[in-house]
Simulated scan of single mutants.
Amino acid sequence: MKTLILMRHGKSSWEFNVNDKERPLKTRGLNDASLVSKHFLINNTIPEKIFSSPAKRAHETCKIFLKMSEKSENEVTIIEDLYDFNGSNVINFLRNLKDSINSVMIFGHNHAFTSISNIFGDNYIDNLPTSGLVKIIFDTNSWRAIEKGKTELIIIPKELR
């Protein structure tokens, strides 16, 4: 069995004159990321490996999850290829994971995460909102062999407020 958890970054701020990778989270993004992380951690185990896009908004969202799960920031790996908006780099990254890893969590971006949720999950999502989380389970022992899995969980922050 393989488990994939995707969490889209929290709502980002356009208030600052910075490049796209440097955009920080808005207060709502901070709050929603905390709310979703807390809800997820109530009934779910922490994944073996955690990866994040290098974008500030994704990495800040990841740090919120790590803090709530009492994990160290050293336990996240920043992967340049996760700064991806169409999903092909993320899928390539997944298919090249070591099979000794059974569960991963990735912090990243849309449209990639909505697309991947629909490609691999069995529950259609029109749009994964900011701070949204999807958990998909695959009945395989190989990341290279992942195909259609079972969408086990979808957390939408608006539904928790």
Rank of each mutant, 00 (worst) to 15 (best):
I156F: 07
L128I: 11
S115Q: 11
I119V: 13
I46T: 12
V76D: 09
S34M: 10
L30T: 06
I42L: 12
S52A: 10
E73Y: 14
D139W: 00
S142Y: 07
L128C: 07
L153F: 01
T77A: 14
K158C: 00
D122I: 00
Y124C: 05
W14Y: 08
N44W: 07
I42E: 14
G10E: 05
K71W: 11
A112C: 14
N43G: 01
T151D: 02
F93W: 13
K148Q: 08
W14F: 08
R144P: 00
K11S: 02
N123L: 10
K38F: 02
Y83A: 05
F65T: 01
T61F: 03
S88K: 15
K98Y: 09
T77C: 11
N141I: 05
K56Y: 09
P129N: 05
K2M: 01
S142W: 03
R161V: 09
Y83L: 03
N110S: 12
H9A: 03
N44L: 06
N31K: 14
K148W: 00
T27W: 00
M7Q: 11
E22N: 09
I116K: 08
F138G: 03
H111R: 11
T3P: 01
H111V: 11
S72M: 12
F65E: 03
D139M: 01
G87P: 13
H109L: 13
S69L: 09
F51C: 09
E48V: 01
Y124D: 10
T114F: 06
L41I: 07
H111S: 14
T3F: 02
S12H: 06
Y83S: 07
N96C: 07
T45A: 08
F138R: 08
K56P: 04
N43P: 02
D126I: 08
K2A: 03
G121L: 10
S115G: 08
K71N: 15
D126Q: 11
V134M: 02
D99Q: 02
T114W: 05
I155A: 05
L82Q: 14
V104S: 12
N118G: 06
T61M: 04
K148N: 04
K148S: 03
E147D: 10
A145N: 11
T114Q: 04
R23G: 04
E80P: 11
P157D: 09
P54V: 01
A58D: 10
S103M: 11
M1R: 06
E147H: 05
R8W: 02
A112I: 12
N44R: 09
L41G: 06
K2Y: 03
Y124R: 13
N127Q: 07
A145K: 13
V36T: 11
L66I: 14
T27L: 10
F107R: 10
N92A: 15
P47Y: 08
N110H: 12
L25N: 00
A145T: 04
L4G: 03
L94E: 12
E48S: 06
R161T: 08
D99T: 01
I64A: 14
L82M: 13
E75S: 15
K49M: 08
E159A: 05
